[in-house]
Amino acid sequence: MQEKGGASVEVRKRLKVEGMAEELERVQTRILNRISDLELSLLPPQHISHSSTEGRLSAILRSNAAAVRDFSFKRVPADYYDWPLEARRDILGAASIHHLCKSIVLVNTQAPPSVTDCRDRNYSKYYIVIVQYTARFNAETVKNFLYTLNNGKISKKKFNMRLAPEETSAKLTGYEHNGVTCIGMKTDIPVILDEAIVKLNPDFFWLGGGEIDLKLGIRTPEFIDFVKPFIINCSGS
């Protein structure tokens, strides 16, 4: 019995050491990724081609009055979206799987014929919503928010938020599915940021970067200052 107990202790110790080694490797990968991003961010602007998506979006982020300084781009493999969230987290050097976010374009299918575009931020035909991959988006909360935003002057029947068809999303944003970002869109679509993202610690999250294999990491306060999104609680776990 003593030998069996001793063997069990040894197994637990070995498993603990292996777990610590895996965590150390993950931390080292994140550090190396951040160092690489920092080196790229320090390159003079002429080293980045403005004809590329990364160059164009970098120029946009830096040129605004509320210029963004803390951001980085990362290329990912073609099969990135076949990976589990943990693997995506590691290759991006994200703080957690909850820091991985996506941008989706919504269309108000019940908007009257007179509302066809995004000129009225409070009552737009389209909205782009940013939510975590680990959260469940709730379109009803967006509907209620927009109804309240308009002080109840527009009937609730005139709000019905649904996922826009891919071809509509691509036409409005200029980006393909899985590459959608709210930076540098063809159309100035009002942005809604899920409140859960604002509460993330650390305050640096990842989203689409304009191409399917390009991801953008950005400091949350700077993103908010630049994009000026509506911030609402529109998701659940």
Rank of each mutant, 00 (worst) to 15 (best):
His98Thr: 05
Ile154Thr: 06
Phe137Tyr: 14
Met1Glu: 04
Thr109Arg: 14
Ser169His: 03
Lys158Gly: 01
Arg26Ser: 15
Asp79Val: 09
Lys143His: 15
Ser8Lys: 09
Ile189Gln: 02
Arg121Tyr: 14
Glu25Ile: 12
Lys199Thr: 06
Cys182Thr: 09
Gly217Ile: 06
Ser237Glu: 03
Trp206Cys: 05
Gly19Ser: 01
Ala135Leu: 03
Lys228Ile: 02
Tyr80Ile: 03
Lys153Glu: 13
Ile183Thr: 13
Ile104Tyr: 10
Thr116Leu: 08
Asp90Ser: 10
Lys125Arg: 15
Glu140Trp: 04
Val9Ile: 13
Gly184Phe: 07
Leu163Gly: 04
Thr148His: 08
Asp117Met: 11
Ser58Trp: 04
Asp213Arg: 08
Glu23Trp: 10
Gly55Ile: 08
Tyr80Pro: 01
Thr173Asp: 05
Glu22Trp: 11
Trp206Thr: 01
Ile130Lys: 04
Gly236Asn: 13
Thr187Arg: 04
Arg62Tyr: 07
Ile224Asn: 05
Ser103Gly: 06
His98Ile: 00
Ser169Cys: 13
Ser155His: 08
Lys158Ala: 07
Gly179Val: 07
Ala135Glu: 02
Lys157Asn: 10
Arg88Ser: 07
Tyr133Ile: 00
Asp70Tyr: 12
Arg119Trp: 04
Ala66Asn: 14
Pro221Glu: 08
Glu10Leu: 09
Lys215Trp: 02
Ala94Tyr: 00
Asp194His: 09
Cys182Phe: 10
Leu61Thr: 03
Lys215Ser: 03
Cys182Trp: 11
Ser124Pro: 11
Arg69Leu: 05
